[in-house]
Design a protein around this nucleic acid. Structure first.
Length: 327
DNA sequence: GGAGCACATGGCAATGTGTC
DNA sequence: GACACATTGCCATGTGCTCC
């Protein structure tokens, strides 16, 4: 078993150092038969080691961006392999002399990758400037934990206070990505409790920790979530907005960095026709409000009326009050 | 200690594929 | 078509382990 493990690691090293090596040459280098090399290739394939044959006479190479097999393993696999160190002392006399150094190299590679990820995540908090809420103490380390968990694809556990009633619940989330909005970050992740993709406002997390469980990111599920989502709130409608932006605001609109690509049409008077379909109207209308009278909702009619109503209410509110009444 | 079993390995043959 | 290489299946052998 030990001999086979060493040979498998040797094959990885040899293929890395000699891309294009043939099965026959591998057999010679490993002092075994071609038949055994084919069996080992089958075993490596079962372990998801991306070694592939490039075709007749072209030999074996690593496919994809692969450095050294253990660098690509999961946290559980790394922990399982680390256990070997505990029992190695007891079986040391039975092991070939090269085994210990091979083991150390593998663990060193794994540790270095972890350190690289950790130091990158630590740098994050010095690079990204976050605002803080008025009622809760700011916890800048959360961003670092989330980035680290997302990089290593590990599940996080934390207390999350609901935006509606401030109820605190314990949640387990597979963190996918961060979405910026104003002076805060939201995290998109797979919520274990709800078995669905959700966005979480980072400032609502407390007592976060990274669990020793890894997960596989389902990018198609992430794409589905963002399809038609203006910012972070996903709805279940399809609302097509047509907005006319004044000529004065066109340059601002065209510089916006949006998650959904709108249809744009320049009009003869210099104004801009902006058409977009969203699955939730709230964040889109909030965004639109910042343009004030520079943006006019043409469609749907009900949202044009809603805007009229809102402006009437605002106008009435300010006309009924005298400045200084709050004192 | 011997039988039985599982597993790793080697040898050989057959088949498929690419190249000359 | 010949040849080299890749792949797979089958069988024999050796080794280590467990059970009686």
């Amino acid at each position: 078993m030990t001999d086979r493990l060493i040979r498998l690691m040797r094959i990885i090293t040899i293929v890395q150092a000699n891309p294009g090596i043939l099965a026959r040459e591998l057999a010679e280098r490993c002092e075994t038969s071609e038949r055994t090399i084919y069996r080992d290739m089958e075993a490596l394939s079962a372990m998801h080691i991306p070694i592939a044959n490039m075709g007749h006479g072209k030999g074996y190479i690593f496919i994809s961006n692969f450095a050294l097999y253990p660098l690509n393993w999961t946290e559980e696999e790394a922990q399982a392999f680390a256990k070997l160190g505990e029992v190695m002392e007891t079986v040391k006399p039975l092991l070939p002399p090269a085994f210990e150094s091979a083991y150390e190299k593998v663990m060193a590679s794994s540790q270095k990758k972890k350190m690289d990820q950790t130091s990158f995540a630590q740098e994050m908090k010095n690079i990204v400037r976050l605002g803080s809420t008025l009622e809760r103490e700011n916890q800048p380390y959360l961003l670092r934990l989330i980035v680290l968990a997302s990089l290593t694809q590990q599940t996080i556990e934390a207390e999350y206070s609901s935006p509606q009633n401030e109820d605190v619940s314990l949640v387990q989330i597979d963190p996918y990505c961060l979405v910026p909005q104003d002076r805060r970050f939201y995290m998109l992740g797979f919520c274990h409790k709800q078995a669905a993709m959700r966005t979480f406002r980072i400032s609502r997390f407390r007592n976060m920790r990274i669990l020793p469980y890894t997960f596989q990111k389902n990018t198609s599920e992430m794409e589905m979530f963002f399809k038609g989502t203006w910012s972070v709130t996903k709805g279940n409608q399809n609302i097509r907005f047509v907005v006319r932006f004044s000529a004065e605001s066109v340059y601002r609109v065209k510089e916006e960095e949006l998650f959904i690509k709108p249809l744009l049409k320049d009009l003869p008077d210099g104004s801009l026709l902006f058409e977009v379909t969203v699955n939730h109207e709230g964040e889109f209308l909030d965004w639109l409000t910042q343009y004030g009278a520079e943006a006019e909702i043409l469609e749907p009619l009900r949202y044009r009326k809603r805007m009229q109503e809102m402006l009437r209410n605002w106008g009435a509110f300010y006309s009924d009050k005298k400045a200084g009444n709050h004192e």
